[in-house]
């Protein structure tokens, strides 16, 4: 029958082994995979400024990006591809809550530079290689109108 001390060895040993593997894999990911898959060379000052705006306004509290965030508003990873820059500019600079489909976005009324920075950020995100996310729909729905 299992003794308490062998149970303790199972706990400590298992933890140390998996932890070491985890750190190794993380190192590999951050030093090789991420720079390549996210095209780190394309992270311009505008992209960084856009990321600051993204964080300081907590856009993630409503939207997801790379599938992370709130589930209240559209996933934005591919939004530039889906809507185009002009549409996004209209959303971001709107002085009244943007709500064509009923739900309200905060009316940020961003100026030209802020809008460009955010678009640069969203464009950069849209070009990252996310292992196939978001998935391509199987069917092209007729309801996809607006």
């Amino acid at each position: 029958m299992l003794t308490k001390s062998s149970a303790r060895i199972f706990f400590l040993g298992g933890t140390i082994v998996t932890f070491v593997i985890f750190i190794g894999l993380s190192w590999h990911t951050l030093s090789r995979d991420v720079p390549q898959k996210t095209h780190e060379e394309n992270i311009t000052p505008a992209v960084i400024a856009g990321k600051h705006l993204w964080e300081n306004n907590n856009c993630m509290g409503c939207h997801t990006i790379m599938g992370e965030g709130g589930y209240y508003a559209p996933e934005l990873t591919k939004v530039v591809e889906r809507r185009g820059e002009a549409y996004i500019k209209a959303v971001l600079s709107s002085k009244t809550p943007w709500q064509p489909r009923g739900r309200k976005m905060v009316a940020y009324g961003f100026n030209e530079k802020e809008t460009q920075d955010l678009i640069a950020f969203l464009k950069w995100v849209g070009e990252t290689d996310l292992n196939g996310f978001p998935p391509k729909p199987k069917y092209k729905s007729t309801l996809n109108t607006k």
């Binding site: 559209p74 729909p137 199987k138 729905s141 309801l143 607006k146």
Partner: peptide, 9 residues
Amino acid sequence: RKMGMDFGD
């Protein structure tokens, strides 16, 4: 995700 309907719809 499967049918491709718009998020808002």
